[in-house]
Design a protein around this nucleic acid. Structure first.
Lengths: 151, 151
DNA sequence: ATAGCTGCAAACGATTTGCACCCGG
DNA sequence: CCGGGTGCAAATCGTTTGCAGCTAT
C-alpha cells in the first residue's frame, strides 16, 4: 500500500495540483496520531509544532484530503465538522456519549450487509454511509443522576 | 394518542412555557404536510399562509418542538439542519441521493436490532441514532455519465 | 402582575472567498 | 514562466442573543 503522502501526491498530480510545504505539513500532522479532530484543533496542533499555516489553507487542504479519500468527515449534529483518517483503516461507525463526549468506534459487518440489502431493494447505488448512536457510555450511565452538562 | 397540539401543550405546561399564537401557527404548518424541511422553507411556507413570524421565533420554536419529541433533526453533512416529524411516525433511516437530493426513507428492524446488540456489548445506553446512506438513486444512476451537479 | 414572548438587529462561529503577492513544476 | 497556492481580511450563512416593548396565564 502507498504511504499517505504518496497517495496524496498521486491525487494532487491527477488534478494538476501542487504538493506544497503547507500541504505536506498538514498531512503529516493529520496522520501523526490517529484521532478525531476538528479544524481548530489541527490549527493548534500545527502551532505547537511551530507550523504557522493560515486557517484558510487548513480548510482548503482538509477539503482536498477528503476528496482524495484520505480523510472523511464524521460526527455531525454540531455545527462544525470533525475528521478522521480513512486510508488504511477499516470502515467503522460511532457511539457518541451525550454526557462526556466520548466516542467509541465499532465495526459490525452484519449491519453493513443489511445496508447493502436495503440499497439493492431501492435500486440505490451507495457511495458512503454514516451511522452514529447517541446515548450514555458506561461511566456516564453510572453517574446517571448527574445533570447532563452541555459542553 | 394525543394530537400534536395536545402533546406540545403538555410539554409547554410541564416546562411552564406558553402556548402562543406564533407557536400554534408554526406547529400547524409543520404538521400540515409530512415532509423534510429546513428553517427557511418553513419561513416561506408561513409567509405563503399569511403568517408573518420572525426567524428568531421560528428557530426558538423548532428547538422546542425537538425537545418535546415532536420533531427530530435529520440529514446532516450540510451546514444547516433539516427536520422531520417523529411523533406518531415509525423510526426510519434515509438514503440520500448525492445528485438530485432525493431522500428515500426506509425501515429495517434487523439493523435496529443489531444496533441494540452493539450497544449492549459496549455497555452503552442508546438514546437515539441516525443512519444515512449517501449515493445515487435509481434515476440518477441511469444518467450516470452526467456531471454531478452541486446544488 | 409578571414570567415568559416576540421582532429586530446585532452578534456569532465555522467556513469560504477576493485579492495581491508568491512559488512549485 | 505561469497556473495554482498562500495569508489576510472581509464576506457568507445558518443560527443565536440582547433588548425593549408585548401577552398569555
Amino acid at each position: 500500500m502507498l504511504s499517505e503522502e504518496d497517495k496524496f501526491k498521486e491525487y494532487l498530480e491527477s488534478k494538476n495540483l501542487k504538493f506544497t510545504p503547507e500541504r505536506q505539513a498538514i498531512l503529516s500532522r493529520v496522520f501523526a496520531n490517529p484521532k478525531h479532530f476538528e479544524a481548530d484543533e489541527l490549527l493548534v496542533d500545527l502551532r505547537l509544532n511551530k507550523l504557522r499555516i493560515s486557517k484558510a489553507t487548513i480548510y482548503r487542504t482538509l477539503s482536498l484530503l477528503v476528496k482524495s479519500g484520505l480523510l472523511r468527515e464524521v460526527i455531525f449534529g454540531e455545527r462544525h465538522a470533525h475528521y478522521e483518517q480513512v486510508y488504511g483503516n477499516e470502515h467503522h461507525d460511532h457511539l457518541v456519549c451525550n454526557n462526556c463526549g466520548k466516542i467509541i468506534e465499532f465495526i459490525e459487518y452484519r449491519i453493513e450487509k443489511l445496508q447493502d440489502e436495503v440499497c439493492r431493494k431501492n435500486k440505490f447505488e451507495p457511495e458512503s454511509h454514516r451511522l452514529q448512536i447517541q446515548g450514555l457510555c458506561e461511566d456516564c450511565t453510572k453517574k446517571d443522576d448527574n445533570k447532563i452538562k452541555k459542553k
